[in-house]
Nucleic acid binder design. Structure first.
Lengths: 255, 255
DNA sequence: CGCTCATTTGACAGAAATCAAAAGCGGTGG
DNA sequence: CCACCGCTTTTGATTTCTGTCAAATGAGCG
């Protein structure tokens, strides 16, 4: 893991931002964008760095610009449980509360658009449209979190694994086709097996067995631990235990 | 199950409302309360009645006044998974979206303070303080949902059962001491075993075995299926796999 | 009392965690 | 370039736990 430390950098213009059309900015007028621009700055974190610790003061909030952030709890035995993954355009941090109940850590190298929390809260007060947009997105997140509860709470391990891989396959940037040597879309897994197992509520061993079972059944081809080629999407969905309609409704699954 | 149908009744005065000091009304000024009063009405549902179906148009929203509402998904096999429980003062329904991703059903006989969804959304637009209060409560719900993900995703069945019982023991009205014949607080379970199992991601059989295991270990005394006497809180917490500090932080667990 | 439904108990098969070890992979330094 | 080291991932063997099926018990009710 590279041990570079976070390097604060000034954001260029929000217009050039990769996620400005998806993040909270969509509720903002040009003048508001400029105001957000003033209180925000880009910051890079290396994989493994703690962005915000559990129980720490929540001084910054913002959006993921690139990379994946994991949201986790530390349990009594030091065992870590992942309760959510944040992808580009997702909001991180906790407004209206001094302490974070979770820790935010960089699952990959990430770039974040950071804002001072009190400054952002002040901004919200005077910009009801943006606040409403934030409320909408939090309501969606809440729905997604509950969908995930239904997955981890009521399904077999294979169903959870297949659901997770299916969701990964639908995320933007994960359906790149390779140079023609492969037939299916390439799924890239942004986190390691231990984190993936922690998110799916199982162990790395059981997870590995399930992935290889999918491989034996020709659902996917394992290129390496972080890359699969999807060979049979219909069968993947069947393994996930969802109907086609259900799955199409959960594009934004909160991960 | 009694098969009475929902009976619309006019709300008396919000002042006399059992939950007005806890529900979203706390962000509202007297004049706003009056306005809410105009668009809301009390409605009773018998246990088992569907308040809002999955995929149905979300025409009403509101607060639970008494009883317990379960939030559930129906999976492909007809199996039902409970993703949340709503207690008095909790908000139900889904604003800013036409279809509910979950169904809301009465787990017990319930009384709801109902409002027309569009009317409530219009009210929100002109009352930013209430909207902000709603945002705050949704952020808390989101934290709670994620805490629950960490429970169902990373713990054994016994840990989930113990966690749930511990949380029940902390809920207001659940720590009544009886007439002196008992030594510990009395925990009343508001839902039946099947719902409890569905919420904990297990089966009624396994749940029953775990509860009776706690009884054998003198952690609690089973008075009847819906009432336990808590004999050893420290051991219950140990079984739940949480540290004392962790547990004290999760009073409002989203259940 | 007899009915229905909820809960508990028992027996068993299957799934997953655990323990242990091997294989793969990336970096470092000789 | 290669050997070595630490880490991740995979595989194997075994034990434990949980779901399933089946049946008994218990509670509420007309």
């Amino acid at each position: 893991m590279s041990e570079t430390f976070a390097v604060p950098t000034r954001c260029g213009k929000c217009d050039g931002c990769a996620i400005h059309h998806r993040a909270i900015c969509i509720g903002a007028m040009p003048q508001e964008i400029a105001e957000l621009n003033r209180i925000s700055h880009l910051r890079d974190y290396a994989r493994g760095q703690v962005i915000l610790g559990q129980g720490e003061e929540t001084s910054i909030v913002g959006n993921v610009v690139s990379g994946v952030v994991k949201l986790m709890t530390s349990t009594i035995g030091g065992q870590q449980q992942i309760v959510g993954l944040l992808f580009p355009s997702d909001f991180f941090g906790r407004i209206f509360r001094d302490m974070s109940r979770f820790s935010y850590e960089a699952a990959t190298d990430v770039t974040l658009c950071c804002m001072n929390r009190p400054a952002f809260e002040t901004f919200l007060s005077s910009h009801p449209q943006v606040e409403r947009e934030l409320l909408r997105s939090k309501l969606d997140e809440l729905d997604s979190a509950r969908e995930w509860i239904s997955v981890v709470g009521g399904h077999t391990t294979m169903q959870r694994v297949a659901t997770f891989i299916y969701i990964l396959s639908r995320r933007a940037g994960n359906r790149k086709y390779s140079d023609g040597t492969s037939r299916g879309p390439i799924i890239s897994v942004p986190i390691n097996r231990r984190d993936m197992a922690a998110y799916l509520g199982t162990t790395p061993e059981t997870l590995s067995r399930n992935i290889h079972a999918l491989s034996r059944r020709k659902v996917l081809r394992i290129i390496d631990a972080r890359h699969f080629e999807l060979l049979n999407e219909a069968e993947l969905m069947r393994q996930a235990g969802w109907s086609r309609e259900d799955l199409e409704n959960i594009t934004t699954f909160g991960i």
